[in-house]
Design a protein around this nucleic acid. Structure first.
Lengths: 204, 204
DNA sequence: GAGTTAAGTGAGTGAGTACTCACTTGATAT
DNA sequence: ATATCAAGTGAGTACTCACTCACTTAACTC
């Protein structure tokens, strides 16, 4: 092997992810990706013979990162570390951990959700890994809470979805609307969301 | 005026919306839009000199539809009609009304959220109309509930966002995962979501 | 330092794009 | 019937794109 090929491939992949997230798959051009990666346009095609293979590789990269290792592992870790804490603390730890993930990989997440709409294979890839691995771990917390009599007898999947919806919608709004100070005072808002989720907004 | 020009323009706009929602703005071609609208490619450019103007027109169409008339009006109407009902019934009426809107205009909604990412003008247009008109009306319900002592002293905006997040996330999941029977048994799930929102998932 | 070969190059190509324009069509007014 | 002109056409144009390939560069062997 001459002139670190693995490095070059990585550079191209990262550049592709950058451009894809800025412009989307169709509007991104291979010449622009080449410039961003600081390689000749031809070099891209040595590694990814079709543009769509670049997109696919970016998705796989993300799913490796999320679906198996970082996402699931860190979720498991957070749950374990806080096992004996109150549900409020467990949820908060999980949410803050997930927010960090969201912040760190926002670009990747955006491309995936953007392209999933149009490419069935990517959608399946994502769903089979992230949803089918992540959701059961998450749902487990609710099941445990139910068994311990802490929670009402509510469908765990619906409960989890509600909670995820609250959190994700908040993050999207922050990222989308304010942007500059998107992650300021986020802990306070998380506290409020957890309180709503656990105790509702009605006066007892 | 010969050969109904308004009709032709509508046909082109609707075809554009269809193709844009299927493929996104960049991947959509004017020749394909022409075929879908059953006009010659040149005709498109008589009405919309640039492709991006077609996109913009589609956005404006949607915002007219949503931002001012249907969305806000039907929201106001639902709130008025159910003024004296319990908060559970008011919320359910609003949600079911919003779900109908979501179903009816899903295609449009998709294009908008898709393209907002890349076109600042469209984002501004959308936010200035929908958010700034819709949100205050919605927030008003929570303020009223707070004043009447029904609700805890929780930030109305955060409360509303949580609720919206729960609902929207549910809709997206249904649309995304099951698709075929996306809106089956939705009333039951809405009831659960409202219960979680009002009373929380913790055992009293 | 000549030879080997993987790694990298970039001008070139053909397909396909957004957009143009000289033209045709057909409803209406006279 | 004829003239008028908005409405509609589609081949043509300039350009951009993804992708190719004959070639160069440089790290390694002997």
């Amino acid at each position: 092997m001459k002139r670190n090929a693995k490095e070059t491939e990585k550079k191209i992949l990262q550049a592709a992810i950058n451009i894809f997230s800025k412009k989307g798959f169709s509007a991104a051009t291979t010449s622009e990706i080449a410039k961003e990666a600081k390689v000749a346009e031809g070099t891209i095609f040595k590694y990814y013979p079709k543009k769509k293979e670049l997109l696919h590789a970016a998705m796989v990269e993300m799913i490796e990162l999320f679906g198996e290792s970082i996402a699931i592992d860190s979720l498991k870790k957070v749950i374990q570390e806080n096992e004996d804490q109150s549900i409020e603390i467990i949820l908060k730890a999980i949410v803050l951990d997930r927010i960090t993930l969201f912040q760190d990989h926002l670009q990747l997440i955006k491309v995936i959700f953007y392209e999933m709409q149009f490419h069935k294979d990517i959608k399946e890839l994502f769903l089979s890994k992230v949803s089918k691995n992540g959701i059961p771990i998450f749902a487990q917390i609710f099941e445990k809470g139910k068994k311990q009599g802490q929670f009402k007898d509510i469908n765990s999947l619906i409960a989890m979805r509600s909670f995820m919806g609250m959190i994700i919608f908040m993050l999207l709004q922050r990222e989308f609307l304010y942007k500059e100070n998107a992650f300021e005072n986020i802990e306070e808002e998380v506290d409020v969301l957890i309180d709503i989720f656990l105790n509702g907004i009605k006066r007892g």
